[in-house]
Design a protein around this nucleic acid. Sequence first.
DNA 1: TTCTGGCACTCGGCTGTTCAGAGTGCCAAA
DNA 2: TTTGGCACTCTGAACAGCCGAGTGCCAGAA
Lengths: 344, 344
Amino acid sequence: MAGEVRQLDDRKLAVLRAIVQDYVGTEEPVGSKALVERHSLGVSPATVRNDMAALEEDGYIHQPHTSAGRIPTDKGYRLFVDRLAEVKPMSAPERRAIRHFLDGAVDLDDVVARTVRLLAQLTRQVAVVQYPSLSRSTVRHIELVALAPVKVMLVLITNTGRVEQRMMDCPGPVGETLLADLRARINAHAVGQRLPEVPGLLEELPAGFEAADRPAVVTVLATLFEALAEQNEERIMLAGTANLTRFGHDFPLTIQPVLEALEEQVVLLRLLGETGDAGMTVRIGRENAYEGLNSTSVVSVGYGSGDESVAKLGVIGPTRMDYPGTMGAVRAVARYVGQILAES
Amino acid sequence: MAGEVRQLDDRKLAVLRAIVQDYVGTEEPVGSKALVERHSLGVSPATVRNDMAALEEDGYIHQPHTSAGRIPTDKGYRLFVDRLAEVKPMSAPERRAIRHFLDGAVDLDDVVARTVRLLAQLTRQVAVVQYPSLSRSTVRHIELVALAPVKVMLVLITNTGRVEQRMMDCPGPVGETLLADLRARINAHAVGQRLPEVPGLLEELPAGFEAADRPAVVTVLATLFEALAEQNEERIMLAGTANLTRFGHDFPLTIQPVLEALEEQVVLLRLLGETGDAGMTVRIGRENAYEGLNSTSVVSVGYGSGDESVAKLGVIGPTRMDYPGTMGAVRAVARYVGQILAES
DNA sequence: TTCTGGCACTCGGCTGTTCAGAGTGCCAAA
DNA sequence: TTTGGCACTCTGAACAGCCGAGTGCCAGAA
């Protein structure tokens, strides 16, 4: 008995899979007859119809109107992604092309720019790449420069190639020797450390200086800590908005809120922020917290220079998207960007 | 006779102006009857019809099909902008709001970001703002930092607040004293100078150093010159793409190429590059060199911290736009950004 | 039980027709 | 040169009819 029940369920799942695949391809509600013709399900349309009725009752598919074919619901796509689809790996030539394209990058900006364009092109959707965030990266070097007697510039360089600078006004003149001393001591403690951990390591530093120098030292450290903590600076790059035109027929209505969402860095950051740290995250339709993206799906994943992810990237497309292909592209691109970052 | 001809022309111009205004408002072909009703032209519809026929013959307006109203052509808009429209000044409260909004900016990035959003909001169109270009700005400070024995980082700070950095590998180890010496001499010559003029001023510099140090000096200078010359780095910020949805009825067709154009920084840069240095530039429809923007108009103007323009900004909208209002907003925003830059 | 073929039914979308309204061009008269 | 009148054109909305895809259900077969 149990065996037969499972057998039944298997076929229903096969039907659902077929519906998703067909609908993604044709963009039109798919009926029982067309299904059996295109997929070798080994049963008659009538049987498929019964299965469809069951699937509809369970909320996996939906009928726009009586006497029309079926369309997968968000729940249907969810099941498809979770249990029915396999991430489609990139072909060897594709992988080579990705690798080659990213290899040409000259600096961090360029890496991000190339990545986002590549992703948009591969998936033919809207691509989003977050700059490697400061908090996950480590210090490569910290530089102090006296621009004027009391004006000091601080430059923070991270292992991901990001450069952050800050101006500050010290409470009094700062000598070149003091600055050199301070620079050396800061770097001795901070280089190679995670950004969020640096403040803790430098806590004792002012005590090692002459009392007269301490105000200046404190000012510099305060500015440094501020730069380290600056989370607002998380930036995002976008590409492929032109692909929005292929979104669907009821076009202007769908596209408007999406464009609005894309304009809001905050929304995009939150969107990527919801990406789990391990593995790929797929948010389908109404699963997205942001209302304007309720008719889109977001496929995102972390990427990083080592084992650990320092930032996220992903694509935004219609719920009716090619999930296996998109997921394959996203995963491949994330992997290669990670490699590039690790090498540089 | 001459007097009568001019009189006639005046009325035809009035008719054209009325057509443009009505069409911009309603987005629908405007007929003779509606015209006389809404504008007090003091003549009958039949007369207007005659004028319309003349205007059509001269190519200023156009009839989508027999028995429909008239629509202005690019040529018609051109005449309107050149002779019939007055730039509509911002109201005092609007000016205050602009000023207030821009005053909150904390750094250059923020200024540009706020400007572009403001412009998009005011005009309800797509706004484009170019970062103050390097070539027009002057050197505030040049810093050299040794990251490793042969690895040197160069940081270039301009008076517009922009920071550019470059890594380089020197042919041999570079001592701290040499670096300090070089830094001092470079800054002595370069600070306050226009970027393009700096290379000329530093030409003689290597001669002043020991023969052994010259290769390193040459490397540093080469990198500096490269950073100075880097025009590609001209960046652009964009906002208001969501306004594209209000473009028109034949929507997807119009919007696709525009979105594509907006993705290409090169296209946008060239677009702004075509802006004349003095006064506002309006490019209507096919006047735009880039084909994808053939059904849009671009209103752009230079802005700068002093008398001189260091960059351009503008908006992109449908040819059927409110030219007086848009031009007013663009001019006002450019003026205030200039003030902000001058102050900081 | 589960699957299948058959059958009646529903409904959206396409086609063709009609009709009203807006707009035109032209002409003769003021 | 302007104006009122008139005949004409064309679009777009409204409506009817038809076709076909697709459904649900049922009775019989496996």
